[in-house]
């Protein structure tokens, strides 16, 4: 497998009136060609900020990328000039879809106009060719009567249909990476299932790598090849999807899975809750971010931040303790 994207030691901060927000604190990960990587974490864990940093979508200031690299096909996305980013990368090589399909579409432009616009600027197509392609794209994401739909406005579509339109727009320029930021969070379960099904089909159809950002460990199970678990601006566990669910090795992942009720099982116990809440990002990180809530905490956790270290094949965690044996690393 060739790595298509490699992020190293990325650090993002926000300068606010209340002080520095330590949003992303030196994270490293990679994305292989054609694979689906899930980034899982609670709100405020830095999962969206990471992706927006890579695509340089954050307003600067207040945001500041304090360090790191993001290598896409040999070039550092954090260093290339703005116009290069705008014309050749964003929306063309790397496309992004967002949580709220209501606000990501312009309400006063027709769907057709919004899709063809990106085709004309990025692919230099003429109007007729762009329209043909737009119809093709809408059919690809499962919208019937595609040609008529081009003339429709976003408000004439339901939430699920709008998310399909967003996906069609993202796919317009054949991107090699699709970043999906909580694309099904605002949708009902039956519609979520439709969208997941669609993405799985499209992934096979067009060879494309996907980064799927979510807080829902359930959705990821059937969709991802690999999973990164994030907490308070750090990646705490990285593993194949099977390992994450069968052998969660970081106390946070472990606790998160134990806190989830299962639709396919009878109730056998109380839910195991994680005491407390995530740490304030306004405080400069010091030691392991999960330490105050962790049941395996040892003295070292409060002093040194653990780095992501391998514990098995394609499986790495950032923790000083082996939760199975209780031994320190």
């Amino acid at each position: 497998m060739t790595k298509i994207l490699e992020v190293n030691d990325l650090m993002t901060r926000f300068h606010t009136t209340e002080g520095m927000v330590y949003a992303v604190n030196g994270i490293s990960f990679h994305l292989d060609e054609g694979e689906t990587l899930a980034v899982v974490g609670e709100s405020g864990c830095g999962k969206s900020v990471t992706m927006m940093s890579i695509l340089r979508l954050l307003p600067m200031p207040p945001a500041q990328i304090a360090g790191g690299t993001a290598i896409y096909l040999g070039q550092d996305l954090l260093k290339i000039p703005d116009h290069e980013m705008e014309h050749n990368i964003r929306g063309k090589e790397i496309a992004m879809i967002f949580q709220d399909p209501m606000t990501s579409l312009n309400p006063v432009l027709t769907i057709g106009k919004q899709i063809t616009e990106s085709l004309r600027t990025h692919m230099f197509m003429d109007q007729a060719a762009a329209e043909r392609r737009a119809v093709e794209l809408l059919e690809m994401v499962g919208l019937s009567d595609a040609r008529q739909r081009l003339k429709a406005y976003p408000h004439q579509f339901s939430g699920g249909m709008r998310q399909r339109v967003m996906i069609a727009m993202a796919l317009a320029c054949n991107p090699s990476i699709l970043i999906a930021d909580e694309p099904t969070t605002a949708l009902d379960v039956t519609i979520q299932a439709q969208i997941v099904e669609l993405v799985i089909r499209l992934r096979e159809q067009i060879h494309m790598a996907i980064i799927w950002i979510t807080h829902n460990l359930g959705v990821v199970a059937g969709l991802a090849d690999r999973v990164n678990v994030m907490y308070a601006g750090y990646i705490v566990e990285e593993a194949n999807v099977e390992d994450i669910y069968e052998d969660p090795s970081h106390p946070y992942t472990n606790a998160l899975l134990a806190a989830l009720p299962r639709v396919d099982r009878r109730r056998d116990r109380r839910l195991k809750s994680i005491a407390g809440a995530p740490p304030s990002l306004l405080v400069e990180p010091h030691g392991c971010p999960f330490a105050p809530r962790c049941e395996y905490v040892v003295e070292r956790c409060g002093m040194e931040t653990p780095r992501l270290t391998p514990v098995g094949r394609d499986h790495a965690i950032a923790c000083w303790v082996d939760i199975k044996t209780g031994a320190q690393r």
Binding site: V241, E242, R262, D264
Partner: peptide, 10 residues
């Protein structure tokens, strides 16, 4: 439609 946090089963 409810996803199950278990890749094989799901």
């Amino acid at each position: 439609a409810v996803p199950i946090p278990d890749p094989k089963k799901d």
